[in-house]
Design a binder for these strands. Structure first.
Length: 341
DNA sequence: TTTATTTGACCTCA
DNA sequence: TGAGGTCAAATAAA
């Protein structure tokens, strides 16, 4: 049931993070004459990446302490709550706490999103369009929990919902709990697949390159399990699919993939991290590269997204043209180009 | 005018 | 009975 973390998977993660670090270094080079802020950001990205690698390495042969992490993600109140809570019981099982939840065969898992600097307005998104339908103060937590449902709930009967709650310990971290799977067909996906939008794509790709070059992935006590057949978790380490600065919202973004929250994690940037020239938030989607076991282990993935102001970066030659893969990097599992198509 | 968000009330369950 | 989740009217924004 519980995996020991999968040495192969861990190596993969470490490799990925190491590669990210290399990318950051490249970014720094390209930022030669850029504003100090950009350099500061890259420096921070680098340090965070190092810490991330260290955390994974320190996790050793033992598995990630998912229970502890779940408790942390759920808030301190769980310390005194012996009974399972929705947060602590992250599983494929239907909810058991309320009648409504019981009636819905909902898949659930939890991710942790860091929106760098996005304390005020995290704009957490995942390629799907959500409508907020409620907010509730949760006992034992400092911040209210927001309740979202799929925009297509009524039009397409999509039952996907999610809960977003800022963590107590870090205002830039958000616990996002997904319930159910999207049954809706995102128009943007269809559009993107059938009608390429060259202009937007070009711009978007450039921006995407900007951001992706500065991507830092921090995995906190990552739980990795051996891939399961037919799982959607074992495919792609990265999925750059969500809107980036200046792009349309997720549902209209040509980069949006038919991903579900179950396989796509998006962290968005706060306005403070966005170029003044762009009012839209920056989005960066990253497929959670880590297997979430069917036994409902929590994957708490922290994605710190950094982005230098777009105008400061002539990054068209980044990431794609200059994406230098480590020979050991599992390139076969990455198909970024497909997301630019 | 339409769409999204806010927020108090209500419902269900432990 | 209290907590969590959802509903729906009111309000705001586009």
């Amino acid at each position: 049931m519980e995996s020991n973390g999968g040495g192969g998977s861990r190596r993969l993660v470490v490799t990925q993070l190491s590669h990210i670090k290399e990318l950051v270094k490249q970014l720094e080079v390209h930022l030669g004459g850029s504003p100090d802020l950009c350099k500061h950001l890259t420096s921070e990205i680098s340090s965070v990446t190092e810490r991330s690698i260290g955390m994974i390495i320190r996790s050793g042969a033992g598995h990630f302490d998912a229970a502890r992490h779940r408790k942390r993600a759920a808030g301190d109140h769980l310390d005194s709550a012996p009974t399972p809570s929705p947060l602590s019981d992250v599983s494929d099982q239907p909810f058991k706490t309320t009648k409504k939840r019981k009636t819905m065969e909902k898949k659930k898992h939890q991710i942790r999103v860091s929106s760098a600097g996005g304390v005020e307005n995290p704009l957490i998104d995942d390629g799907h369009s959500w409508r907020k339908y409620g907010q509730k103060e949760i006992l034992g937590t400092k911040h209210p929990r927001g309740y979202y449902r799929c925009t297509h709930r009524h039009s397409q009967g999509c039952q996907a919902t999610k809960q977003v709650q800022r963590t107590d310990e870090d205002l830039t971290l958000f616990d996002v709990i997904y319930h159910g799977e999207h049954t809706c067909v995102q128009k943007a996906v269809v559009t993107a697949a059938g009608k390429p939008q060259p202009e937007r794509n070009t711009n978007a790709q450039s921006r995407l390159q900007d951001i992706s070059s500065g991507l830092t992935v921090k995995t906190e006590g990552l739980q990795t399990t051996e891939p399961q057949q037919g799982s959607s978790w074992d495919a792609m380490p990265f999925c750059f699919s969500s809107p980036v600065s200046g792009l349309a919202p997720p549902e209209r973004n040509p980069f949006s993939t038919p991903s579900t929250p179950e396989n796509c994690l998006v962290a968005s940037l706060s306005p403070s991290m966005v170029s003044p020239a762009t009012s839209d938030s920056n989005y960066l989607c990253m497929t959670e590269p880590f297997q979430v076991g069917s036994d409902a282990e929590v994957v708490s993935t922290l994605v710190a997204v950094m982005s230098a102001p777009a105008p400061a970066m002539e990054a068209n030659d980044l990431f794609v043209d200059r994406f230098e893969f480590d020979p050991s990097f599992p390139i076969e599992s990455i198909d970024i180009s497909s997301y630019f198509a």
